[in-house]
């Protein structure tokens, strides 16, 4: 068993797994509509029933890397609190990447399900 999984508390998802699923989650959330950092974190928490706990600041390097890869793009808009806020939206490459992420996660999910059914 990888060390990261063994050492984590049973109710939390391992760090490695969080990092691996970050791109897929962000792409999926932005696919539903433009959003910003804090709201994306909230959405992840809701989707996972509070099981996926990100170190919240770590989201930004992920967003910026995805921006560099032209998967998403940012734009500024005044938020409901009157301050300027950076929003992110999906780009065509991001839509394609999302389709690919879905395919890969489906493969992993299907393989694990099958393995656990026969064991």
């Amino acid at each position: 068993m990888p060390r990261a999984v063994r050492s984590s508390k049973p109710e939390r998802i391992a760090k490695d797994l969080i990092a691996a699923s970050a791109t897929a989650l962000v792409l999926s959330i932005l696919n539903k509509g433009d959003s910003y950092g804090y709201a994306i974190i909230q959405e992840v928490r809701e989707l996972s029933g509070g099981q996926l706990e990100w170190s919240e600041g770590m989201l930004y390097p992920v967003l910026h890397r995805m921006e560099d890869q032209a998967l998403i793009e940012s734009f500024e808009e005044r938020g409901d609190n009157g301050r300027k806020r950076k929003y992110y939206r999906l780009r065509p490459d991001g839509r394609r990447a999302l389709a690919e992420e879905r395919r890969q996660w489906d493969v992993v999910h299907a393989a694990l399900t099958k393995a656990w059914r026969t064991s």
């Binding site: 804090y38 600041g57 938020g79 300027k84 950076k86």
Partner: peptide, 14 residues
């Protein structure tokens, strides 16, 4: 500046 503002915004929301 914009990266800092983004994180500050997050801190305020929290």
């Amino acid at each position: 500046r914009s990266d800092l503002a983004e994180i500050e915004d997050h801190l305020r929301e929290l």
